[in-house]
């Protein structure tokens, strides 16, 4: 266990490392991750919601329950960076009391590092090595906007935590965010009436949900401070995974996330023109989805391809 944790820490440092030799090494590392772990098992869960909604304490409660079920948990906690200095305060471990000396829980904080979309480029590869090392990987992001919901583009199951009576609910509805999550949670059910009202609003809004096939999005309420509703969340999240497995969607979603990640990096570096030169987004995606393998190696191969054409 101790050696595994140390290896995971080293792997995460490596994936963060931008030096060419490190990139090559990271590419090999990702290519050698067990296919089964990375595409067919484990559970990648995204959790997002506005600041102050009680994500940390809810995560703490969830982790405790998963640990009771003897499942190991990896957490990637994403915090905003300062636009001026590039520095960041990563304080999210703060309230996670219960897990702090538990060897079955591994927490890595990540600054979003100015990335449009709220998630830095390292998030996807880091999720993959965490998947290889833990039963459950939780990616936590902070915020209320469309940006933060990008976490749904790299997780199997996305949970959105709503604040009772914050008025945000209406904003989410307008922004179309409600169509994304697979599990909706109203935290702080202990505040009573306001929480019930938010719950009703959310339930009412789900009539419009069209993106999730026949998955019926559950709307749950919980109180992290009182420890209520947590078992139900764990259960709902697990049901969603079962549903994905039944639909055969777990593997195909992850392959598609990987393809999107590669295409996004290429588009950032070479623009629309570069994507067209590689045969267009659709074809590129199709190729990448069928290939599997290491995202870094694919990226490097395609980049070299483009660079060779122009040099």
């Amino acid at each position: 266990m101790a050696r595994e944790r140390s290896a995971l820490a080293t792997a995460l440092n490596l994936l963060d490392d931008k030096r060419p030799e490190a990139r090559a090494c990271a590419g090999r590392l990702l290519a050698n991750l067990p296919e089964d772990k990375v595409y067919h098992s484990g559970h990648l869960i995204g959790l997002t919601g506005p600041p102050g909604v009680g994500k940390s304490s809810l995560i703490s409660a969830l982790v405790e329950r998963w640990r009771d079920q003897r499942r190991t948990v990896g957490i990637l906690a994403v915090d905003p960076s300062s636009p001026v200095s590039g520095g960041a305060l990563l304080g999210d471990r703060l309230r996670m009391l219960s897990s702090s000396t538990d060897g079955g829980v591994f927490i890595r904080s990540l600054a979003c590092r100015g990335e449009v979309g709220g998630l830095s480029a390292e998030t996807w590869p880091m999720s993959l090595v965490m998947l290889a090392a833990s039963d459950i990987v939780l990616v936590e992001t902070v915020g209320v906007g469309q940006k933060e919901i990008d976490v749904s583009k790299l997780t199997d199951t996305t949970c959105f935590i709503a604040q009772p009576a914050s008025g945000d609910t209406i904003q989410f509805l307008k922004a179309g965010i409600m169509e994304v999550p697979h599990v909706l949670i109203v935290n702080k059910q202990d505040v009573g009436l306001a929480a019930r009202k938010t719950l009703t609003e959310l339930q009412a809004s789900l009539g419009r949900n069209t993106h999730n096939g026949d998955w019926a999005v559950p709307v749950l309420s919980a109180s992290a401070t009182q420890g209520t509703g947590v078992a139900e969340i764990v259960e709902a999240v697990e049901s969603h995974r079962q549903w994905l497995l039944r639909e055969g969607a777990l593997c195909s979603r992850r392959r598609s996330f990987q393809a999107q990640w590669i295409v996004k990096r290429l588009r950032e570096d070479f623009g629309r023109f570069g994507i067209e030169a590689l045969g267009g987004e659709r074809r590129l995606m199709e190729d990448l989805i069928t290939q599997g393998g290491s995202p870094f190696e694919h990226y490097d191969r395609l980049r070299d391809d483009l660079v060779a054409r122009w040099s």
Binding site: R5, S85, L89
Partner: peptide
Amino acid sequence: RDAGFEIVYEGIRLTPRQIAKAAQEEG
């Protein structure tokens, strides 16, 4: 933070083991 470091601040009352574990996990 203002100087450009990424800061992991864990608050008060930690055991030495918690600090070491966090340093490892956070790189």
